[in-house]
């Protein structure tokens, strides 16, 4: 065996470092991609749930209309916030419109107490149960989405992954907040 020169050893060590370094970068990059995909996936889950609720509303409104004459205002409000939700572009608008719709719907359910016939209607009961279930699904989807966002955001901000995230333009994702201030108990006037 011939004696290796100092430069050769240096080169070998450098080569090993380069191999490990690039493997590390690739692994991290792939990890970031899958985390971001997860965020997108959870976001579309929220969309599915929101859509499901929006689809229920026309039926609900028409059922309520059949029994009531004086609740035009609240029905209009529901339709408006539904339209607003479907037109919402970014996450902030969406979460705000979603909260508005939730509030309008819960106000409707309080108003309904005045109409015993409506409350006993089988169609109406089924619709409100579906709505309650969908609200729960939205809450679950929102929680899952926020967890995914948190994991992703933490990962791209931690050293040394943040260097790789910066290099490949991984931007931090926005949380889907339920604005708790907007979720006050609805005040209903029976005058």
């Amino acid at each position: 065996m011939k004696k290796l020169s100092g430069w050769a050893i240096f080169g070998i060590i450098l080569g090993i470092f380069a191999v490990f370094g690039s493997m590390y970068v690739i692994g991290n990059y792939n990890n970031l991609v899958s985390l971001r995909e997860n965020v997108n996936n959870q976001y579309s889950n929220i969309d599915v749930c929101l859509q499901r609720r929006s689809d229920l509303i026309p039926n609900l409104v028409s059922t309520v209309k059949g029994y009531t004459n004086h609740e035009k205002e609240i029905l209009t409000q529901i339709s408006e916030s539904r339209a607003k939700l479907s037109g919402a572009g970014n996450i902030n608008e969406k979460s705000q419109a979603s909260t508005e719709l939730t509030n309008a719907l819960s106000r409707l359910l309080v108003v309904v107490e005045n109409y015993p016939n409506l409350k006993a209607d089988a169609q109406f009961i089924a619709l409100t149960d579906e709505l309650a279930g969908t609200e729960n699904r939205i809450a679950v989807a929102r929680r899952d989405y926020n967890t995914a966002v948190q994991t992703y955001n933490q990962t791209i901000k931690k050293f040394p992954t943040n260097i790789i995230a910066n290099m490949f333009n991984f931007e931090s994702a926005e949380r889907f907040e339920s604005t708790d201030s907007a979720r006050e108990v609805p005040i209903v006037n029976f005058e």
Partner: peptide, 19 residues
């Protein structure tokens, strides 16, 4: 050098080296 192969899979997968 041969021994390094053992690490390949774990480096490409999770990437949670520091976590």
């Amino acid at each position: 050098d041969d021994d390094d192969d053992d690490y390949h899979d774990s480096y490409f997968g999770g990437g949670g080296f520091w976590d």
